[in-house]
Each structure stands twice: as C-alpha cells, then as structure tokens.
C-alpha cells in the first residue's frame, strides 16, 4: 500500500503530510507532525484525551482517519493560546487547580472550548453532559466544572468568580 498525501490546515497553518491509508488523525498529529498535545488514552473513542475540532466540530482524533483531514480545518490544543495569551479556559484551569496529572487536560480544554462556542452560558448540568465524553481519573471533575463555568462567565463579560 502506498501512502496518501494530505493537504490540510492545522491551527491555521497550511500543512501537508503523508500517511498510511489506515492511519488515524491522532497518529498523524502525534507521530508525523510532532503535535503531541493530543493524547491517546484508549484508541477507541471512549476517553476523549485526543479531542480536536475538525471544521469546527468536536471529534476524537483516534476515530478519524488522517486522510479524512484533506482540505479540513483542524484545531488542536496547540492552537488554543494566542501567542503569549492563554485562552480564558486555560487560565481558569490553572487557577482552579482543575488538573492533577494533566493527561486529560488538553482534550477537556478542546471540548470545553467547543462547548462555549456553541453555548456561552451553559448550566452546570449542560457542562457536565457535554464533557461526559472526556474521562478524568484524578479530579472527580469538581474543579474542572468550576473552571469551565468561571471561564464562561468571564468570556461573557461577567467578572464573578465561581466559588
């Protein structure tokens, strides 16, 4: 089998790579492009550690073929901060101690950003259900949910802090 040539856009940059026909987008990101921020926790779409957006839609990059990224707009955790400025979600995760080991953090941040783009004022329940596809084994989710709600409030221009 010969490799497939893929032209795509990743975090705003035009990118080309070669991949195997059965190679996942996650493997291409990690092993061919050096974007190791997306993690493989399961390889079966159950843990969400590999979450990226493709044309604005949240996907598990372990469940998508790299070849399917042709002409797509892919964003990963590496594209979340703008230069020196962290995204409010990234800042709030640090402030709220919303990570312990940090392995699930990139996927959860990507998923949470996708949530707030669709729904800038989620309820706690909505946030919990949106993030139900992202496993965190360390935190019990409490501080993650608080950080997401606080970031959402800040992004809406409400400067209140979640307790």
């Amino acid at each position: 089998m010969s490799q497939i040539h893929v032209s795509t856009t990743i975090n705003g940059d035009a990118t080309e790579f070669l991949c195997e026909p059965d190679e996942t987008l996650l493997d291409a990101l990690r092993d061919r492009l050096g974007l190791t921020g997306s993690k493989e926790g399961c390889g079966t779409g159950d843990c969400g550690a590999c979450s990226v957006t493709v044309n604005g839609r949240l996907v598990c990059s372990c469940l998508m073929l790299a070849a399917e990224a042709e002409d797509a707009e892919v964003t990963t955790i590496e594209g979340m901060a703008e230069g020196e400025a962290l995204h409010p979600l990234q800042r709030k995760f640090i402030e709220h101690a919303a990570l312990q080991c940090g392995i699930c953090t990139p996927g959860i941040l990507v998923a949470a950003k996708a949530l707030l783009e669709q729904n800038p004022a989620p309820t706690e329940t909505e946030a919990r259900y949106w993030l139900a596809g992202n496993l965190c084994r360390c935190t019990g989710y409490d501080k993650i949910i608080r950080a997401v709600m606080d970031a959402a409030a800040e992004m809406r221009g409400e400067m209140r802090r979640a307790s």
Partner: peptide, 19 residues
C-alpha cells in the same frame, strides 16, 4: 498559588510517557 507546571499542562507542551 498557580502550579509551576500549569502552562505546560494546559498548552499540550508537557511531555508524558508516549510523547
């Protein structure tokens, strides 16, 4: 205080076992 490895962990730069 904020943890010293916080920025690495929220930007995907922290290097784990498979990285």
């Amino acid at each position: 205080p904020n943890r010293p490895d916080g920025i690495d962990k929220v930007t995907g730069r922290a290097r784990f076992g498979a990285d």
